[in-house]
Write a protein that binds this DNA or RNA. Structure first.
Length: 152
DNA sequence: GCCAACGTTGGC
DNA sequence: GCCAACGTTGGC
């Protein structure tokens, strides 16, 4: 089982929205970055655990935990003319973008802020610390444990 | 295949 | 809302 961090803007879709979604589950739609897509397409597996990270908001950080309940399949938004995620170069024969399904597990007792993660020297590998803008990133078991501890 | 111009992300 | 850092596009 692997660990991941998925970014979302809570004004658009928050950990609370995931909790309140039908079956506490959503398609993780709209990822339009190739590196992030490749992770979803090739490496994100059913049963993997995901940190839900809130970006571009007042309280930036890890807000809760979800689990992967369906592996990669074509993102329906890429074919939807009315979607902001429509991609004219994507076809049903050759879809360009994928989604996975994630299901709510729980909130963290306390949001673990980006600042706290950056300041914790025991968190060593996460791409968040390197200023990258990846929206889907792997998390090592060690970093996962450290961040979970920080929520207590 | 280089790289300048442009667009987007995302913290602050 | 600003702007730095990064990714993508497209002319050559």
């Amino acid at each position: 089982m692997a660990y991941w961090l998925f970014k979302t803007e809570p004004d658009a879709f928050s950990i609370d929205d995931l909790k309140n979604a039908p079956a506490h589950t959503t398609q993780w739609e709209g990822v339009r970055n190739y590196q992030a897509r490749n992770f979803m397409r090739d490496e994100v597996k059913q049963g993997d655990l995901v940190m839900i990270y809130h970006s571009s908001c007042k309280q930036v950080g890890v807000a809760g935990i979800a689990t992967v309940t369906r592996e990669a399949y074509p993102d329906p938004c890429q074919f939807d003319l009315n979607s902001g995620y429509y991609d004219p170069k994507a076809t049903t024969e050759n879809p360009r973008w994928v989604v996975v399904d994630v299901t709510y597990k729980h909130h963290l007792n306390n949001l673990v802020s980006l600042k706290a993660i950056k300041e914790n020297e025991a968190v060593t590998d996460i791409a968040l610390k390197k200023g990258g803008r990846l929206s889907i990133m792997p998390v090592t078991a060690s970093d996962w444990d450290q961040i979970i501890k920080m929520a207590h």
